[in-house]
């Protein structure tokens, strides 16, 4: 009986050992691949968290990536700019990134592009925090944010593969020549496709209007961090090629009120006719193409420049 039990335990331990060895070996390779990225989504995240020293940082989701052209802001405001936007990553991710940034330096200006649906009660996208897992062990700020919103992360992090599982399809190709393109674009994503369909109206929801209090708290914390670090913050909602429903408009009002309470400039371009009347400036209903992004960036850069001038926030004055 005893020898049988011992054999069972031996078999189980051997199996676990095989899994652990494979996990460690593959996880190490994935880590190497991740660190070696010199272009693309993963590189941009690492660069935003660990390297950028730009005067102006743009925060947001894929809408930030596609709508804010750093070179236009640089030319217009005479300050360096980097776009830290990441596809599908909303306010909690942005909070984690700004915490990492201010631990290194204080940018002079931040533009935060927000998406109304992120603040809806039922929209819970904490799984998107997966993209911060590669920094979990090295960045205490990120560890604490992830642990705030998710359980058992320390247990899951026992696997060496787990932190890189979310980006498994982005680890393959990595050409050194791409690095030049990345430097030139500064986080902006070019898209030349044009939207061919007519404007739609966002469906009205039957559910009662409730804001996601966790996300609103994160938004307020983002504003507080900027205040504490003397960073001039602008909150913006870039154009949509769809008429937002009453629920989205209510959320925009809540977000605007929070910004105004904290003396933060709030620009709502969600229905700015300079873009939203023209399908050819978009590549889908939520994203401008490069033509549209140029128009929007020029317009916003002008507005930001005006505000900075009036507040004597130009780079030279600041120095």
């Amino acid at each position: 009986m005893k020898s049988k039990t011992a054999r069972y335990i031996y078999n189980i331990l051997i199996f676990i050992a095989i899994v652990l060895v494979l996990d460690y070996f593959i996880g190490s390779q994935l880590k190497k691949q991740y660190s070696a990225r010199s272009r693309g989504l993963l590189y941009r995240t690492s660069f935003s968290i660990d390297s950028t020293k730009a005067d102006l940082l743009i925060f947001g989701s894929s809408r930030a990536n596609h709508h804010y052209v750093p070179t236009i802001f640089e030319d217009s405001l005479q300050m360096s700019c980097y776009n830290t936007g990441r596809d599908g990553c909303l306010i909690i991710y942005q909070l984690a990134v700004i915490k990492c940034v201010v631990a290194r330096y204080s940018p002079k200006v931040i533009i935060l592009d927000i998406v109304p649906f992120d603040f809806m009660d039922m929209y819970d996208n904490y799984d998107k925090l997966n993209c911060l897992l590669p920094y979990y062990k090295t960045h205490p700020v990120i560890k604490s944010i992830i642990k705030t919103y998710r359980n058992f992360e320390d247990v899951k992090m026992l696997s060496s593969i787990y932190p890189y599982n979310h980006c498994i399809f982005f680890l393959g190709r990595n050409r050194q020549s791409d690095y030049a393109v990345e430097l030139k674009d500064k986080g902006f994503l070019n898209t030349s496709n044009e939207w061919k369909q007519s404007k739609i109206t966002e469906k009205e929801s039957k559910k009662p209007f409730v804001c996601n209090s966790t996300k609103i708290a994160a938004y307020k914390e983002f504003i507080d961090i900027c205040k504490k670090n003397n960073i001039k913050l602008f909150v913006a909602i870039s154009p949509f090629f769809q008429n937002l429903n009453s629920r989205s408009n209510k959320i925009i009002k809540v977000l605007e009120d929070v910004a105004l309470e904290n003396n933060v400039d709030f620009f709502d371009y969600s229905n700015d006719t300079a873009c939203t009347n023209y399908a050819h400036l978009f590549y889908n209903v939520n994203h401008l193409n490069t033509k549209g992004a140029n128009i929007y960036s020029r317009k916003l850069a002008g507005k930001v420049g005006e505000q900075l001038k009036s507040l004597e926030y130009t780079l030279t004055n600041n120095k």
Partner: peptide, 11 residues
């Protein structure tokens, strides 16, 4: 199991 770790969606 390693395939699950690598390709699984843990959301």
């Amino acid at each position: 199991i390693i395939c699950i770790f690598v390709f699984g969606v843990f959301d």
